[in-house]
Design a protein around this nucleic acid. Structure first.
Lengths: 145, 145
DNA sequence: ATTTATGCAAACATTTTGCAATAAA
DNA sequence: TTTATTGCAAAATGTTTGCATAAAT
């Protein structure tokens, strides 16, 4: 909650994500924590399968069902994010209202931090009747040419 | 190309999308045209399966492979868009730099038109070395409460 | 004690593959 | 003509389901 009454997502680290879960009434199960820890350690975004594999390889047992249920719940709540990349659905941690620059030629994703003016957010809230929780901007462009 | 040298996506209708394909050296096959026409007629976003089904029901024959290959190519080029919604990957037409408001409680997607200031775009281009072609903003929030 | 969350195994759905045939330029 | 695109049929992936068990609050 900032001075304009705009509720802003303030997840900066894995611990914040866990707190957010609790604040939302989600239980912090061993498996859910595993996923959050993994995503906050990982540099890249991971697919559901990669998450399943990596955790089990580390001896952190988790089933397929739990992976999917958790990814769905966590991304719906804006605790993690889901991006489409080259026909794959990848999940990653969120740090603030960060955005992506997708290079259409190099297939690279560059993360940038970009904050929209709070009066713009407020205007959108008034126009649509939706209380904005978080947002994400995807830019698409070409590195070369 | 506007006066600031920012290349902006100017697809307003199906015809524009077809022109864009040609400009990119993509051939306008019967199947590709079917998909574009369908997406520009449809109000909602459609899954690959729905696109396949609808076209074939209309007697517009198309195979699975072509649907997938086209959706991949067209969304990569920013001619159509791909959104994650409730664990499903949905495709839809693009009208300008439009954005989405995703209601986390009602599961509704509201389309809004939102133009970022061109000097911001320019700044990002300078910072990242990526020529922005188009962008999309996703807002997440709650309608009630 | 009360729910939420897990996870198996099986069904179901989606996506990719190689490659010969086809059609757009 | 040349080359991108198609589409088949099968394989490979990815995702969901019901439901009894386990674990978090």
């Amino acid at each position: 909650m900032n001075d304009l009454g705009v509720k802003i997502n303030t997840i900066h680290c894995c611990k914040d994500a866990i707190n957010r879960c609790q604040a939302l009434g989600m239980r912090v199960s061993r498996q859910r924590r595993y996923i959050l820890e993994l995503l906050w350690e990982a540099k890249e975004h991971l697919s559901a399968r990669e998450i399943y594999d990596r955790l089990n390889q580390q001896g952190k047992n988790i089933g397929h069902t739990s992976v999917y249920q958790n990814l769905e719940a966590l991304s719906t709540q804006g605790i993690i994010e889901c991006v489409n990349h080259c026909q794959a659905r990848l999940y990653g941690h969120i740090s603030d209202n960060h955005s992506h620059i997708n290079c259409l030629d190099t297939n690279q994703i560059i993360d940038i931090h970009l904050e929209l003016p709070s009066d713009l957010i407020q205007l959108i809230e008034e126009k649509t009747g939706v209380k904005i929780n978080h947002y994400r901007i995807d830019f698409y462009g070409y590195k070369h040419n």
